[in-house]
Design a protein around this nucleic acid. Structure first.
Length: 167
DNA sequence: CGAGCATCCTCAG
DNA sequence: CTGAGGATGCTCG
């Protein structure tokens, strides 16, 4: 049923992969969600949303060209989640980290990091897809079927991840 | 509290 | 290689 998501989002951006729903609060981005294939484009009309779309244009044109973006976020989350989301934004394009590595850096547990990644409100721009498991790709959006998105993004960023053999 | 997680490690078979 | 199971930190009801 196309269009059913339009009342939730201010803008629906069409990426090469799937549509992304934007929610704005004034000049700040509050949500960027991957939408189901059935959703249809809804162009930006306000300035701030348009600038987010331009950032996305640049990213999907060439990930490595966009080393940092100046989108403003306004995010709801616990202190711990914010700490993880900030750490995510410090992972540069082309690199990945494991949940365990990030956990050690933040003095916490790998599963807690994964949980915070899962609750990332801003897909792509807060690059939770750059965190992978010690032995493989890890999860994405709590749904195995969405893993192709994570895989696509990493490939687009020139990352060659491989399923490590254990031991 | 207790259950549920986008994990990790170890230890059999 | 595979699977089971414990340790782990954080969140939500």
């Amino acid at each position: 049923m196309p269009g059913q998501y339009h009342h939730r989002y201010d803008v629906v951006y069409r990426s090469p992969l799937a549509c992304l729903g934007l929610k704005m609060d004034g000049a700040c981005l509050t949500a960027l969600d991957w939408l189901p294939a059935s959703s249809t484009e809804l162009p930006a009309q306000s300035g701030p949303a348009q600038s987010v779309c331009e950032t996305l244009d640049a990213y999907f044109e060439s990930a490595t060209a966009v080393q940092d973006h100046d989108c403003l976020f306004s995010l709801r989350g616990t202190e711990f989640q914010r700490r993880v989301w900030q750490a995510l934004q410090r992972i540069p394009v082309g690199l990945v980290m494991t949940y365990g590595e990030l956990a050690r850096k933040l003095n916490t547990g790998s599963r807690a990091v994964g949980q915070a990644c899962r609750s990332n409100p801003v897909a792509v721009l807060i690059p939770c897809h750059r965190v992978i498991a010690a032995n493989g790709l890890g999860g994405y959006m709590g749904d195995k079927r969405q893993l192709r998105i994570k895989q696509w993004l990493l490939t687009h960023e020139g990352v060659e991840w491989q399923t490590k053999t254990r031991h």
